[in-house]
Write a protein that binds this DNA or RNA. Structure first.
Lengths: 163, 163
DNA sequence: ACAATGGAGACTTACAGAGTCTATATTTAA
DNA sequence: TTAAATATAGACTCTGTAAGTCTCCATTGT
């Protein structure tokens, strides 16, 4: 049973974006690279992007619900982007697949998280950090990632022929 | 048994800084607000900052190991800052108490995390996002937080008298 | 001697992230 | 009309980790 098993002892933990977002970005970039209107099946995305099958299924559901991709049920069904790749930011993807970007719980839960919330001098620091990060991620689109991906493929092909 | 129990159903999850960092910043700010060289016991910090006792113990250990605070063993022992509060950045605190700031595992694990690492067009996005965030956090010091804390206390006092 | 402290570390618990699988509804195509 | 291919929905498992609790020991001031 050589079933390619993903290493699980990666100790990801706090303060990093997980696989859901990773996979979502891959899937969206892949869709963005397809010919206009072409319907791509889940299995296709999975194989090309090395994503665990059934896991992607749940992620796509979120992307559909969030209005980022359109689904086509039935035989020959699959997915297409629901909007231009340049209008989908990484922040959009994150918040669609995960949840609103919140660096410190107190920013969301207030006194529920910490009784000192009202007079906390730490809070505004995380607020600004969160803003800085969100701004950056809002400024990067799926189109940019997909373009770079395409560029790399195009560049690699002639190089390999040369060798 | 009205033992103040912290709500656990907070669903913190991915992409946010946890309590360890929160508590560490509180403790350091508190120490920064003390008269030069005054030794503060763990129990004192706990009570004033509403931090679970034994949990803080482990955090302080990390801060000592990281050279941010100095410990004084024995009766009348406790902690003092090991360096100027203005030279301790939030990034320092985070990395001392948690671990190096890494937004996406592939940035740390490379091919170990994802086989497409070498040709990944997503990677540089997270790299930059991480840099942006780290830069910001490196620019905020414990001194700034402590000052604001002190400022707020000073401002609040006269206001309450006025009412 | 004794009480007060930090140091070290074992231990518990809850939960979320990640992954797997199955049943169902829908659609195309033969 | 039937069969195959697809998305949808959601139940289920496994594992690691954050968070919290507690106990024993070494050290130090009084």
């Amino acid at each position: 049973m050589v079933k390619r098993a993903r290493m699980r002892s990666e100790r990801s933990s706090l303060m990093n974006v997980g696989r859901r977002v990773d996979y979502a970005v891959r899937a969206l970039s892949y869709l963005a690279g397809q010919p206009e209107g072409k319907i791509i099946s889940r299995a296709d995305i999975e194989k090309s992007q090395d994503i665990p099958s059934f896991y992607l299924s749940k992620i796509m559901k979120d992307l559909v619900a969030g209005g980022l991709v359109q689904s086509h049920i039935g035989s020959k069904g699959g997915f297409t982007l629901a909007k231009g790749a340049s209008t989908i930011s990484i922040k959009d993807v994150y918040e669609t697949v995960e949840r609103p970007l919140v660096l410190m719980e107190c920013l969301e839960q207030g006194m529920n998280y910490c009784s000192f919330c009202a007079v906390c001098s730490q809070k505004s620091v995380w607020e600004k950090a969160q803003f800085v990060l969100a701004e950056f991620l809002a400024g990067v689109s799926i189109a940019e990632i997909a373009d770079r991906q395409g560029l790399k493929s195009r560049l690699r092909a002639p190089l390999q022929q040369a060798v």
